[in-house]
Design a protein around this nucleic acid. Structure first.
Lengths: 216, 216
DNA sequence: AGCTAATGTTTTCCCTGTAAACATTGGGAG
DNA sequence: CTCCCAATGTTTACAGGGAAAACATTAGCT
């Protein structure tokens, strides 16, 4: 950490003769990320990754305690990305309710774009998320995005203020997480209706959030 | 299928001398189910199950195409159980909104009681759920429970009827699924508040469903 | 009694995760 | 400049697991 690593990136497995890869950790994460979306975490093999990185089969263990460690790092990366996207979706000048909706859509889109990663973030693979401090921290950050919006909404009176802010925030999160999961699993496509998929998703989000608004 | 199988259940791995187990499929499912909640689907091994059932290590392959097949069967079982519980929760004489809430609570309780199974039902392990007809069918059944309640509610005018029934039903499902998932992952415990866990969950459910009610 | 499909068994192969012990390197202290 | 150490990779080795193939046993119908 905190070292300048400028030694020939993308050396690939050819005979550069460098004993040290110089960038293994990140390379492994990138490769893992690619394969994750294709084959799921089960099929993901540290050995295969090492092979692909042109490195011995146990080298990865210098960077990750074990397979779970690698997966946890991937998940943490996912949370950070999710946070960035939901923040970016909120443009200046939006009303609070619209901010919430837009951030929610960004959240759902992230899940749809990286289904395996998203499932990893919540999935059974990461048994005890709280065991990995980096992961825990990243997760909290992404919750903070929602909480901030809710606080603004409650202060303004846009949202129903009979409930504690944390409860409202959890409700938002549940909603968005629920939609994301079902969407990933293709459940929206299963319902027998002629409403297009994305419309159904947006409608579900809107209908859910509507319960949070203050009654006039 | 459709055979009388009364030949000494619970023969255990002792020397009963019967070449044919007579009940292998169900025995494997039971054992798998037990281990699933302890160690997760990754650690679950067909060989270990076979050993425990007192049978050779490849015998399971006579009943399941592969490990995924076994897991899919488990998941299907889960859906059926979930359907039964959500139906049972609705007592006669309940108002529609209360039926929805009660069924939702039963759903969430099922998830909390069998976290690993629940995660399996939606998790990354079952890559393409729709690849297993039995699983697909079971899933549809459990959605039907929600849809039925929603239809009653719309007909009575209890629910907002500006939205199609399917959309409302999907919203319910998303809500309940979202809460269940987050609850399993202990996310309700993470929020910094002095509200007890179960109260927070019930509150979230109530707040979410409230958005579906018709505005007076 | 005898055939056939269903069910179990043995054997085998290759892959994976992971622990030890060893090799190589770059960078800082003297 | 030299020497040593900590970080990083390598080799080797072991204990499993999933799955295919060929073989054995049984139940039940004819």
């Amino acid at each position: 950490m905190s070292v300048s690593n400028e030694q020939e990136l993308s050396a690939e497995a050819s005979g550069s003769g460098t004993y040290h890869h110089g960038n293994l950790r990140e390379t492994l994460l990138e490769l893992a990320r690619k394969h994750l979306e294709d084959s799921g975490p089960d099929k993901l093999s540290l050995r295969a990754l090492a092979r692909e990185a042109g490195v011995s089969q146990t080298a990865p263990y210098r960077h990750f305690a074990d397979k779970q460690g690698l997966l946890a790092a991937l998940a943490a990366q996912g949370y950070l990305e999710l946070t960035r996207l939901t923040l970016a979706a909120q443009k200046a000048g939006m009303e609070t309710a619209e901010r919430l909706f837009t951030a929610g859509l960004a959240y759902i889109r992230f899940a749809s774009d990286h289904p395996a990663l998203y499932k990893l973030m919540f999935g059974p693979v990461i048994g005890q998320p709280m065991q990995f401090p980096e992961l825990k921290r990243a997760g909290e950050l992404s919750f903070q995005v929602i909480l901030d919006i809710v606080r603004d909404g409650v202060r303004e009176g846009t949202f129903d203020s009979n409930s504690p802010e944390e409860l409202i925030a959890m409700t938002c999160w549940s909603t968005v997480h629920g939609i994301s999961s079902l969407s990933i699993d293709g459940m929206f496509g299963c319902v027998d209706t002629n409403i297009p998929d994305t419309t159904l998703i947006e409608g579900t989000l809107r209908l859910s959030l509507q319960g949070l608004l203050a009654r006039t």
